[in-house]
Structure formats: C-alpha cells, structure tokens
Design a protein around this nucleic acid. Structure first.
Lengths: 170, 170, 170, 170
DNA sequence: AATGAATGAGGATTCATTCAT
DNA sequence: AATGAATGAATCCTCATTCAT
C-alpha cells in the first residue's frame, strides 16, 4: 500500500459517507448536511473537496468502477473459452455488488437515470463492460461454444438484465 | 364507455401531464408548476385533485397497471400451456411499454426506487404479475414443458430483468 | 391617474423598500430579508416579482430616471438660451435628489460602480442627460453666451461633478 | 531610505495586493483568497498582519494619503498666492490619481461610501485637505485674488467634485 | 371549480476567520 | 513566520403548499 496524502484520505472518507447516504435516502432527499454528519465533518468541508453536491455524486464511481473493470480484465486473461469468461463476469458482478450494496444502489438506481452522468467518462467503463460481454457472446457463437442462432444483443440484455434485477431487488 | 364525471376527466388530464413531466424531468426536478403548465391549468388546481406532489406521483400507476394486469389475465384464459402464457406476458409487456414510454419511465425509474411506493396498494399489482410469472414457470416445470432442473426464481429474474433492461435502455 | 393592476402596486412597494434598504445599508450588506421586512412581505414574495437580488437593484432606476429625464426635456422646450437651460438642469437635479435622497444614494453610490449596470438600458438615460449638458455648453459657446475659450468637457465635468459632490456629501 | 523590518515589507505587499484586488473587483466581490493569490501568500498569512478583511481595507489609505498630504503641504510652503496654491493642489491630485488608479478606485468608490471609514483617523487626512482648500479659497477672497462674492463652499465643491468626476470616469 | 397571490420551510453554497502544526 | 485544513454563520433562492376570492 502506498501511503496516501492526507487530503486523499479525507476525500475517500467523504465519498464513502456520500455513497452510504445517497444509497439510503436517494440523491435528492439526502442533504449535504446528512453526508457531512455521516462523515463527521462540517458541511463546508465537503465543499473543500467537491465543488457541488452533483460533483460529489459523480465522483462516487471513480476509481471503484475502473478497478472493478481492470481486475476483471486481468482475470479474464487466464481463462479460455467464452463461456467461462462470461460465467466469470457474472460471478464477479454478483460478488462485487453483494459486497458493495451501497455502491450498487448509487450506480444502478441513482446514476443510471442521470442524463449528465451518461455523458461522463466514468460511464465509459460501464459501457466497456457491456461491450465486452457482447463481444464474448459473439466469440462464443463463432467458436461454436454457443448456439449460432441466438441474438447476441438479446442474450447480453438477458445477462445484464438478470443481474440488475436480482441485485436491485436485494 | 361509461360517461365519466367532469372531475374524473380533469384528474386524468393532470395525471397525464404529470406522467409526461415526471418521465422527462424526473420527480424531483419536475415542479408542480411544470406539471400545471403541461396540463394547462394553474398550480393550485392540482391541489384540488391531489393532496400532494407525492400523492400525484403515486396515483400515476393507478388504473393503468390494474387494467394492464386484468387484460393480461383475460387473455391468458384463452391460452393453454405455460410456455405460451409466458410468451404472451412478455409480448404484452413489450407492447405496453413501447406504447407507453412515459409510463415505463415513471414506473421503472422513479417509482421502483421509492420506498413508500413499495408499500402502496398500487404496487401489489406489480407483485401479482411477478408472482404469476413464477407460478407459470413452476407450472411448466410440473407439466414437463420446461426443464425440471431450472431454478424458477432465477428464470423469473431473467425474464423480468431482460424486459426491464431492454425497456430501460430504450 | 390610470388605476394600476394590483401586481404593479406590489412591485412598486417592493422597489420602494429595496431603494430605502439598499440606500441605508448598501447593496451587499442589505439582505433580501431586510428588504422584505421593510416591505412587510415575505422573502419569497420578492422573488415572485424579481428574479434575483441584482435584478431588483437594477429595477430601481426604472421609470424614475426616465420620468426625470422626460420632464426635464419638456421643461427645456420652453426655455431659450443655453445658460438658462443649463441652470434649469442644475436646479432640477438638486431638487430631484433632495426630494429623493435614497434614490440618489442608490444611483450614485451603488449603481454607478456596478459594471453590469453600465451596460443596461437604464444607464442610457444617465448618459443622455450628460450628453445633453455637453451639447448645451457647446451651443452656448457657439451663440456667444458662453466664452469660446472654455473646454466644454471640463465644464460639463465641473457641473456634474459639483452636483455629485454636494449631493453625495449630504 | 530607512531599512524596514521584514514584517513591514510583507505588510506592504499585502496592502498592494489588496488595493489592486479591491479596486478591480470591489470590496465585497473580492475574497480574501483573491487578495492572497494576488500577494502570492496563503489566506491565513493575511490574518497575521491584519485582523479582518475590513481592517485590511481601512489600512489601504494609511501612509499613502498622509504622504500625499504632507508632500503637498511642503510644496505649498514655497508658493505664494492662494490661486497658485489651489492650482498646485489640483495638479497634484490629478497627478497622484493618474499614477495610482487603484488607489483612486479604492478611496473614491469603496471607502467613501463606508460609514465606518468616515469615523476613522485615516479619513481625517482627507478632511484636512478639504479644509485646506476651503481655507485657501477664503484666503484668496480676503486678499482680493478671488472675487469676494463667491460662495467658498460651493467653489470648493466645484473643485473637488470636478476632480472626482474626472477621475471616477477614467 | 379555479386560481392569483403569498409564504414557510429548507437546502446548497460561500467565505471570513481560526488554529494546530 | 507561514499555512493547510476546517468550519460557523450567513444568505440567496426554490418550491410545495395554502387560501381568499
């Protein structure tokens, strides 16, 4: 572990509090005061680290999503066969969301329906993963691992939709 | 068609405007003024028909969901076989959401994450449909139409999740 | 007097309160609550009539400056001779400011140093009057009423500057 | 030049930055951070030298006005005749303000309308100069240099007002 | 039934100021 | 002497909601 500068630690602390608070109350119903209270700092301090409530929200996925994606990619390198890879992705997804339920709430319920977020770089990682799944399905169809008469887009929707449905209901 | 009292018509007009406005701006970002403008009435008039902004939101599913569910049930009576029935449900869902995109937005993005709504009677219809799907899957498993080694809960999640994923992405 | 719509009366009431409050406390030190208290209405009501504190400030000169300018112009029509006209302007200025000390404070101390205001149409009236004085001085020089070796710009500065100095000191 | 203690130099540096910043942005719109940035020091350091933002503002005239006044007085000793003296004062004023535009902005636009400042010792120098002008006018009237039927107060207002008008418009 | 007018309550944000290091 | 970090206090502004007409 590289020692982090103090301000980074504080930033993480705020993000964690924000994640928890937003997940439980929703973005609009949660106030900056709520987040500050959760983080045990003052309202004003939050603004030393994030310029607005919205920027705070958008900063939540940050490194986490990227890390999740990168870890996944590094694991996939060791696997052969599209089916195994897809299975691994599904598994990781569940494992990740189960261990980060607040993160799941924020990304799936709050960020997903925010138009501005859909245009932000952090959203690219989500799209990358989605594209990867599609790619693997096509690959599996080509190698004969999967049936050739399936609609890969529909299959992807089934995979991701099922995960979301199960995680969202949790 | 039974002639409706005037006030019912006005109520529908407001609900329609609310549905459109909430769908496009989100519940919090849409103001009562926005809804009133869309309905071409004054803010105060809305409060003659609905006691609060939240009640207005919760009133949107109202008859529509019930009607959707009832129509579905009446159609299903004419079908034999679980597979056909499930297929019919899926088909109706898509057909309904495609023809009522604002309704889809409101129910899937806004209401679903509102805890209070999950305790309201209108939500019961959603649950009923969900239970029906589960029931049909089990039925199909029993009759041998579906494989017996599937997890019916997972299959239901796959069906509903896929629909939601596809509709939500639209 | 044409009867004014109610909302115009309320607007005037707010403007009057704002003028008094801003004159006594300065724009920044005066709060919307101060103005509201002076007008004996609630803070929120101010925003029904003016979109922001700054717009409220900029609305103060409004009709008053225009009226002042127009009255002056109509009087000047009856006068012959540049000297008389200039004297009349000076007289009116003093008379006006003495009878509207808060207005004088707001326009001379607050608005004058606001860059945004200098680009607003209301400021045009101020400039018009300044130009008129210059024009009259030049006219008097041409007709021989005033000495021909004076610098008209300097004389104008002397006239307006003296007025401002005396009014500002009051 | 007497060598100044280091802390005096730092104080000057801050005052210079404050003068520039206040002149350009106005007292209220300029933040302590703005001043600190201009002075290339931290916010907190300013408070090592000045107890509050307002004290910082009030400290700007400080030595400068006094020096200006004293230089003027020493020059005037060499002049004979009220007219020459008044002319000299006017000349010095313009020369000074032209070479110190930020100082002019701060004293004429910001400090002048601050009631607290009018009660501070630094303001005394301004008044002294104003009184001196009045005194010279009266002197000139007594010696016959100036017409005896003028209103000395009005003439003083004309002199100072003209200067202010021209400098303020610059 | 309909609404113009008014407002209470609340929230995001800013910034001068403090203080431990 | 210098400052990074933290915050209390304030203020603008929004908006759901009420009510007299």
């Amino acid at each position: 572990m590289v020692p982090q500068p103090k301000s980074e630690i504080r930033k993480e602390q705020i993000l964690k509090a924000a994640m928890k608070t937003f997940a439980h109350k929703g973005f609009h119903d949660a106030t900056i005061s709520d987040v500050a209270r959760e983080a045990k700092i003052s309202d004003a301090t939050i603004y030393e680290y994030f310029s607005s409530k919205e920027e705070l929200l958008f900063s939540i996925p940050g490194k986490t999503t990227r890390k999740h994606k990168e870890e996944l990619e590094s694991i996939l390198e060791f696997l052969r066969g599209a089916a195994d890879k897809v299975r691994c992705i599904i598994h990781r997804y569940f494992w990740f969301f189960e261990n980060n339920p607040d993160y799941a709430s924020v990304t799936m319920l709050i960020l997903k329906q925010n138009r501005k977020f859909l245009e932000m770089p952090a959203y690219k990682d989500v799209q990358d993963l989605s594209r990867l799944v599609l790619h693997l399905i096509k690959e599996g169809m080509a190698t004969g691992e999967f049936r050739a008469d399936i609609n890969p887009y529909l299959v992807r929707a089934a995979i991701l939709g099922t995960i979301e449905h199960l995680v969202g209901a949790a």
